[in-house]
Every structure is written in C-alpha cells, then in structure tokens.
C-alpha cells in the first residue's frame, strides 16, 4: 500500500514536471542553462520595472524603450539604439527571448549572467544613465513598488540585488517557441513547398551557426561585415583585447526575424535580402573571419526566395502579442 502511494506520488510529480516543461518549451529543445522555476510575484515586479522609465536618470527611458514586445523585444526601423537625452548608441539593441538558453549577453558577451546584463543599460550614460542609489530611493518613495517588492521578497526588500533579480525573472519568461516551424516540428502543421525547400537550404548553408532549434549557437563569430569606420566597433576584442576576438559578435537567433529588422550588430541591413546579398557578395576577408564563410554563401534567385520563406516560418506572433508580456496596468 505504502509502495503504491509512493509510486502514485512520483507519477503525479513526473506528470506535473512534464506538463510544466511542455508548457514552457518543446521537448526537442535542449535544457535551459538556468532554472525556469520562477516566482510569479518576482515576475510581476520585474514586469513593472521593465516598462517603467523610473530606472533612468530623468525617468524618460525604460527597458522597453529599446526592447518593445511588439518587435520581439528589440527596437525596429532604426539602426542604433536611442538613449537618454536623444543620444544614439553604438549598437543595434538585441532581441530578448529564450534568454535562459544563453550564457553570455550583449553583442560582445560582456555580461555572464542576466542580472549582470541588467546593470549595463541602466548605468550606461548614453542609455539610461541611472544611478542605483537614486533609483532605489525613487522606488522606496513609491507605495506601489513598496508593495510589489514586499510581496516578492518580503519586508524591507527594495535593494539593487532584488531589483536585478526581479528584472531577470521577468525576462526569463520571454520564451518564443510557437512559430510555424515549432508547429511543424510538433506535427501540428506542414511547411508549404517553398518553405520546405528553404528549410533544406537552411540546413546545409546556415545551420552550423544558426543551429536549430534555437537558431543560434550563441557563440561569437566574425561574419565578414566590413568595418564601419564611424563606429569602429571591434566587437568582443574590446572586452578581451585578444586579437583573435577582433570583429567577433554574438550570433543572434534567427527566430522572429520578421519583427527584428534592421539586422546585424549595427543595424546596417533593413531587409533579409540585403543580408543574403552580404553573405553572397559582401564578405570582408580577415584573419578572424568564420571559416564557414570563406567562400560566401551562394544562392540562386529561387533559393534566396525559398530560404526567406523558411526564415519567415520562425516568426512567433503569439509571443510578440502575448498579453503577459505587454506593459502592465496599475
């Protein structure tokens, strides 16, 4: 009897685990690098903080200013991020999704954890130019935030560590796993002929860096972009000072490309066809160029169309318009 009860308990636990896992991401995905056992109160607090310009010096810029949910948590239509006092940054804001599967953040990987990453834009003088003591004082003056922090972390809880943790918890909920590609993989939909051909091209020409199912290895690579002499951005080299890291940038996921234009770390391309033109005709050779790109990626006109058709199956509209991701209402 006791054995049966224990077995039943384990079965219930297993079912619960599977149910939870299935609801967050598909079973053909790898395990995330950080736990997705998240706290709903911390998520709620993090969501308010993410959308609140209170985190910037003059309360004019929020995380959402550069990471709008409707563009898959990046900005669209301008190449470089816009910051406080109308300043323009030096890089295209990266899209925020599937962060639990990543170990380095930002284009050059300067942050090794999501919490560490959160401090970067808040303190950066051309992004939010925040001062953590000042922010904490502002939050402590708010009845609303006193209540939210108390619910998430118990009493007397407004401090930098909790602020960063709450922001991270909210961002870890940003899981994009419901594109047409995912539906096809789950056997719930089928590619059309053009998408299927595009998928075959993708698997032979793109998958080594933009590996399924996350569509990135999240490693760093030089994809042969000619250096922009105005920005003079050396990528990961600026962090490591290792010449082997010159012009290396984090490989972005190809999910949600429909929403995340312009493309590349400096937003130089506004369409997917411009990106394909680069890989076919525009690669700048250097000692750090990714070996797989040494001969470029040559595609016929039909193949380009087919590849783009497939890439657009990675658009996750449900993610982009998910109400739980949108700005909260007081």
């Amino acid at each position: 009897m006791k054995k049966a009860a224990v077995s039943f308990f384990l079965l219930v636990l297993l079912c619960a685990f599977n149910l939870r896992r299935d609801s967050l991401f598909p079973d053909y995905w790898p395990e995330p690098r950080v736990s997705l056992s998240l706290d709903s109160q911390k998520i709620a607090l993090g969501r308010f903080l993410f959308y609140d310009p209170i985190l910037s010096r003059d309360s004019s810029v929020s995380c959402e200013s550069c990471h709008s949910p409707y563009s898959s948590f990046t900005h669209i239509d301008h190449a470089l991020s816009h910051g406080i006092d109308n300043q323009i940054g030096t890089r295209n804001a990266p899209a925020l999704f599937n962060l639990a599967w990543q170990s380095h953040f930002m284009w050059d990987g300067i942050a090794n954890s999501l919490q560490e990453q959160n401090t970067q834009p808040i303190l950066n003088p051309i992004e939010m130019d925040g001062d953590m003591d000042f922010i904490i004082r502002k939050l402590k003056r708010s009845d609303h935030y006193r209540e939210l922090f108390a619910k998430a972390f118990r009493v007397d809880a407004i401090n930098e560590a909790h602020l960063l943790e709450a922001l991270s918890e909210f961002q870890l909920t940003l899981i994009s796993a419901n594109s047409k590609y995912d539906q096809v993989m789950a056997g719930k939909a089928e590619f059309n002929e053009m998408e299927r051909k595009g998928y075959e091209i993708f698997k032979t020409r793109c998958n080594s860096c933009h590996t399924e199912p996350l569509f990135s290895t999240y490693a760093f690579a030089n994809n042969g972009l000619p250096a922009d002499t105005a920005l003079n951005d050396l990528g990961r080299y600026s962090l490591t000072l290792n010449p082997k890291d010159s012009f290396l940038f984090k490989i972005p996921s190809l999910r949600n490309l429909k929403y995340t234009f312009p493309y590349m770390h400096d937003g130089r391309f506004t369409s997917l066809y411009q990106v394909l033109d680069h890989y076919q005709f525009g690669i700048a050779f250097s000692t750090t160029l990714a070996p797989v790109l040494k001969n470029g990626i040559h595609l016929s006109s039909n193949e380009r169309t087919e590849l783009v058709a497939f890439l657009l199956t990675l658009s996750d509209e449900a993610f982009v318009f998910k109400p739980e991701h949108a700005a909260p209402r007081n």
Binding site: P53, E64, S65, S68, Y70, S71, D77, H78, A326
Partner: peptide
C-alpha cells in the same frame, strides 16, 4: 490599436506611455 497601419511592424510604435511616433 496594433492593427492595420498601427501595426508595430511599421516601425512607428514607441513606448507604452508615449504611444506612436507621429512624424518620422
């Protein structure tokens, strides 16, 4: 809201408290 020409994919949606860019 978020439909037709107000679809954020048009690149004019700004932030939740300032709405859309009127003129770019």
């Amino acid at each position: 809201f978020l439909k037709g020409d107000l679809d954020p994919i048009k690149g004019m949606y700004w932030t939740w408290h300032t709405g859309y860019v009127h003129l770019k």
